[in-house]
């Protein structure tokens, strides 16, 4: 499959810079928006940077000798970055090869898997319950994401993630696939009402409960990065098909597309924050039931796509 692998140095630089800098900033915006909805002033926009800076400066307590406990956060972060490298930034794609959509799918799941490994490496029951819940969420959401991406790949006729938006045709099934993608990206990101694995008031942070200091910082960073990756995927799939004409026409076109992608992300995040602020958390069985229904729906969409609509 990896016959034609191409690496763009510029793409890597843009990708690293964005994924390294943007997630805490977006979180800062979300916190501010939520605060304003709740009639509060809220923390400064850069608060999440301060939080992470502080966490990175603190040593971590280790409740277990299990080395996976220490490895898991870094694994999660590395997975999130790897996923980010497969996405197009304007005209530049850091890493591109045929079949990278499969790799993207797996690497994205690895973020959750790493978190689950970390959660199960300790003997804390909260952490274990959180791990269980995360696993249930992954098992019920990933298929939806998989089917959605599958429809796109099928319609575009390519297995390269960055090539799909350039080739995907407008049809009934792709419109439905967009809806599925939006739902899956939202649920996978663990925003309220899907923040079941962390559920602060029920299981005291769940998967995060045993982490502290630097490791907690890395883990939170990985979660934020994963949210950005999913959102970027969404924004790419929405932007590039529309700007297909200029996306590959040179540096200026590339920058325009990149800017539009960025603006879309910046607009979407406050909307998500507003949605978070006005919802309560699902119980895990309710979330899984909902996901299952959506998954069955996605199979119908897949059938529609197969028929050729």
């Amino acid at each position: 499959m990896m016959k034609t692998m191409s690496i763009s140095v510029l793409g890597i630089i843009v990708g690293v810079v964005l994924v390294a800098i943007l997630p805490p900033f977006l979180d800062g915006i979300a916190r501010k928006v939520k605060a304003r909805i709740q009639y509060r002033v809220g923390p400064p926009i850069l608060q999440t940077y301060y939080d992470l800076q502080k966490l990175f400066g603190l040593p971590s307590l280790r409740p277990t000798e299990n080395k996976w406990f220490r490895v898991a956060p870094y694994l999660a972060l590395a997975s999130a970055f790897s996923a980010a490298f497969l996405l197009p930034y304007g005209k530049w794609v850091p890493v591109k090869f045929s079949g990278d959509i499969v790799v993207f799918f797996y690497v994205l799941a690895m973020v959750s898997v790493a978190i689950i490994i970390g959660a199960f490496s300790t003997q804390n029951a909260h952490s274990n319950i959180g791990g269980h819940r995360e696993m249930m969420m992954v098992l019920s959401v990933e298929p939806i994401l998989g089917v959605a991406l599958g429809i796109f790949a099928f319609k575009a006729g390519t297995l390269s993630l960055s090539a799909i938006p350039l080739k995907v045709p407008a049809s009934f099934s792709t419109v439905l696939a967009y809806l599925l993608l939006i739902y899956a990206a939202y649920a996978e990101s663990g925003f309220v009402p899907f923040d079941i694995a962390e559920a602060e008031t029920e299981i005291a942070g769940g998967v995060l409960v045993e982490y502290s200091g630097r490791l907690l910082g890395v883990l939170e960073y990985a979660i934020l990065a994963k949210r950005l990756v999913l959102l970027w995927l969404l924004s790419t799939f929405l932007t590039i098909p529309i700007l297909r004409g200029i996306a590959l026409t040179g540096v200026v076109g590339g920058i325009v597309v990149l800017a539009v992608q960025l603006i879309l992300v910046l607009v979407a995040y406050p909307l998500i924050a507003a949605l978070e602020a006005t919802n309560a958390r699902y119980r895990i069985d309710q979330a899984v039931a909902l996901n299952t229904r959506i998954f069955l729906l996605s199979l119908v969409v897949l059938a529609v796509a197969a028929v050729g609509w």
Binding site: K34, V192, T201, A277, A280, R281
Partner: peptide, 16 residues
Amino acid sequence: ACHLVGFDTGFMYAWR
């Protein structure tokens, strides 16, 4: 009660 089910806007509103 709102806070326990993760509905923080209700929580903030009630307490305000």
